[in-house]
Nucleic acid binder design. Structure first.
Lengths: 108, 108
DNA sequence: CTATTTTTCCGAAATATCGTAAAAATACTC
DNA sequence: GAGTATTTTTACGATATTTCGGAAAAATAG
């Protein structure tokens, strides 16, 4: 099972959070707002590609009827596997982060 | 402000958790147990080096009086900056992960 | 045809990870 | 103290992976 990169994790969370509205631009904007860091499109789409290839997101073509023209959007949806990966990653971090958790060594 | 890699985050958490007992071998073992993944020493020490250079951990020479000989240990301690970095990273993740949190876009 | 929005492309540069043999430092034994 | 066993760290080239930039292309409405 491949791990999630930090940025992958970030973008995956964004996809998850944005639900029906997750496409390139909104994802980028969302991550930018939350992290204070703006990623170039190269990074964004490359990460989304990797997520798709790992089966953590799926892509669907958007309806071609926006407000003022412009290229068709591709929406991203988190998959079951994606949710699972996210949940596992978060679980691990929470476990480690939780101050009450004993370490294996501290029990000696 | 440099970000933490996923593995860096991992090792930093381990250092933090192991407190006075954090040196190469215990760190490696701890991470291995928690994640189910064993990192080679190259990866381990390279990550610790980077953490040290970023000021997130400090290194101190251990007392040379173990049980059965062997090279001197170098203990790692998390620094204030390290704690701050960890806290920030965790905070962000918790925020994003928390299902109740509204997205900027969902408020429209 | 023009304006607009979104995605793609792609090589270069930066980083991360691997593996493992070797070196260093120390205690123990006689 | 010399040799041996033990523990831990270091070194480092080779791979692999990520990230960057941003101009260009695609798709669409007016």
């Amino acid at each position: 099972m491949k791990d999630l990169t930090l940025t992958e994790e970030m973008f995956l969370l964004a996809v998850w959070k944005l639900k029906e509205e997750a496409y390139g631009v909104t994802i980028r904007q969302y991550v930018s707002e939350e992290t204070g860091r703006t990623y170039p499109y190269g990074t964004l789409y490359s990460a989304l590609d990797k997520l798709a290839r790992k089966g953590f997101v799926a892509r669907s073509t958007g309806d071609p009827s926006p407000e003022r023209g412009g290229r068709r959007k591709y929406y991203y949806h988190i998959t079951g596997q994606g949710i699972e990966a996210l949940r596992a990653a978060m679980e691990l971090k929470r476990l480690l982060w939780d101050p009450d958790t004993e370490t294996a060594l501290s029990k000696s």
